[in-house]
């Protein structure tokens, strides 16, 4: 690829803002991928603190146990890119106002855990912020069947989807599989930022 094209891509990615709802397994891994890819602005929304049993799949470290996830992740992301602009909201996303932190982002990335919350969040973003690109994931539990994952696209809504997966109540959440889906989401966010027509 020529230098001009590389610079064009770098500039576009650097100017983009991705809002992440929930920075557990999906959101924390997606944030790291986006930061490494050069996304310049992230909005992180999560009220939780890092716990020991998060470490099997979420992008946190043992010495961050007890810290707010938003603070811990910001710290990690700044180790990757010190000039990354990271805005954090320590709030629980509640039905009726879920879209508020995401009004000004270019792409919304869903990283929530519970199926009910996921469905409500997607519904609220699609209805209240029409036209806003949204990337979500469903079917994150399990392992060993990465080829079952596919992207379902409906307009500006992209779903990283394994419709045959069991829920996390019935199956395990494993680092490799969770990170796969998180990176899938991040990759879709980059596709949106760079435009579908991008020649690669």
């Amino acid at each position: 690829m020529n230098i001009q094209e590389k610079n064009r891509i770098r500039k576009k990615v650097q100017g983009a803002c991705v809002g992440i709802a929930g920075i557990g397994g999906l959101g924390s891994n997606a944030a790291v991928a986006l930061a490494r890819a050069g996304v310049g602005h992230l909005v992180l929304v999560d009220f939780d603190v890092v716990e020991e049993d998060n470490l099997d799949r979420q992008y946190y470290f043992h010495d961050q146990i007890g810290k707010l996830k938003s603070d811990a992740l910001t710290e990690t992301l700044h180790r990757i890119n010190p000039s990354l602009d990271c805005i954090t909201h320590q709030v629980k996303l509640e039905r009726g106002s879920m879209e508020i932190p995401f009004k000004d982002v270019d792409v919304v990335l869903e990283g929530l855990d519970n199926a009910e919350t996921k469905a409500t969040f997607i519904e609220e973003i699609l209805l209240k912020l029409p036209g806003k690109p949204l990337v979500a994931a469903s079917g994150v539990a399990g392992y060993g069947k990465p080829d079952r994952i596919s992207t379902l696209q409906m307009g500006n809504f992209y779903l990283c989807y394994d419709e045959k997966a069991k829920s996390s109540e019935e199956d395990v959440l494993i680092a490799s599989h969770v990170a796969l889906m998180a990176n899938w989401e991040a990759d879709l966010a980059l596709r949106i930022i760079l435009g579908e027509h991008h020649d690669h």
Partner: peptide, 29 residues
Amino acid sequence: DSVIPRKDFLHVTIPDKAVIKVIHMISGG
């Protein structure tokens, strides 16, 4: 291509020749 919120499932009727996508959310993240 129009999103039907769950609260409307009870009264929105399906038109003939409709193309419908039913997507379920599975816990895990």
